[in-house]
């Protein structure tokens, strides 16, 4: 027998359809606008391009040539190198940024030493502290310990446990019965074996999803590489310089939109290819204790 359509589901469908239409409209419009001659866009933001200005993408792509000062003179880093930098930056930061909160939260969730609860409290407290003027101190510390302007230095800086992903991993680990690890211990498994061979595989989907979410975040991040690795520019740094540019060429809307598309399209491709992994089901429990 056919089910009667639920009013709730109909309303939800309509709402989501509206949101989806809005997103798609915006991106499609941005795509068309990015192909307009800048003066044509000034005359009308709405009209279809009369002249298809693919040169906008060439100009935008050119803007992803970032000048990097070095002791032996300025060096111009081209788009290919910038893409490599971005993969390297995003990949390493994402990996450490996922692994460290994961293993830290595992220890805090599964080992019943009271002192470990401090880590949980630190995470919650730090989530709510707005930090004022920390950049200068961070730069100073980075320079003094020799990690300033190095990719691996940024990885170390990004390998922190504080943040909401700690809470997500924590709640995942809390849902795993202790009997698993107890059984493994009886069989002679050590703590490292239990963690890496038993527990991590159980939360592999969560791990992968967060890894990919962080990869995307770092792909799009410009503030940290701009300040801490000026010699290793990334795509997002290129777009940011572009977006704030008052230069005649890059200050025009269609070219800025073209620059945005250049940043957006690789992520869109990755998103389509890895959709299932990126949006794989995360088994997540709670933080009730």
């Amino acid at each position: 027998m056919r089910k009667k359509p639920s009013a709730l589901l109909i309303v939800l469908f309509v709402l989501m359809a509206f949101i989806a239409t809005m997103y798609i409209l915006m991106i499609v419009w941005a795509g068309f606008a990015s192909l307009k001659d800048p003066w044509e866009f000034d005359d009308s933001a709405l009209a279809f391009p009369k002249i298809w200005s693919f040169v906008n993408y060439a100009s935008a792509f050119k803007s992803y040539t970032v000048k990097v000062p070095t002791p032996t003179g300025d060096v111009f880093v081209g788009p290919v190198r910038i893409i490599i930098n971005t993969i390297f930056y995003a990949g390493g930061c994402a990996f450490l940024g996922t692994l460290v909160p994961c293993i830290t939260s595992y220890v805090v969730a599964k080992y019943k030493f009271r002192v470990l609860k401090i880590y949980y409290v630190i995470v919650v407290v730090c989530l709510s502290i707005p930090i004022i003027g920390g950049t200068a101190s961070q730069l100073r510390i980075a320079k003094s310990i020799g990690i300033y302007d190095t990719i691996w230095g940024i990885w170390l800086m990004r390998g922190y446990f504080i943040g909401s992903y700690f809470l997500i991993f924590y709640s995942s680990f809390m849902m795993i019965p202790n009997s698993f690890s107890e059984a493994a211990k009886i069989d002679g498994a050590g703590n490292f074996t239990i963690l890496f061979k038993l527990v991590l595989p159980l939360i592999s989907k969560t791990f992968t999803t967060i890894l990919l979410i962080l990869f995307v975040n770092y792909w799009n991040e410009y503030e940290t590489p701009l300040m801490f690795t000026p010699s290793v520019p990334t795509l997002a740094v290129g777009l940011y310089k572009f977006a704030i540019s008052a230069s005649d060429e890059y200050g025009k809307t269609p070219i800025q939109l073209a620059g945005s598309m250049i940043l957006f399209i690789p992520i869109l491709i990755m998103y389509i290819c890895l959709q299932d992994k990126l949006m794989g089901n995360i088994s997540m429990g709670g933080i009730k204790e």
């Binding site: 990097v68 060096v75 190198r81 190095t150």
Partner: peptide, 13 residues
């Protein structure tokens, strides 16, 4: 990552 390579220099040192 100190930017000493990977691109063309703007002026000969």
């Amino acid at each position: 990552g100190n930017g000493s390579g990977g691109g063309r220099p703007s002026e000969e040192f």
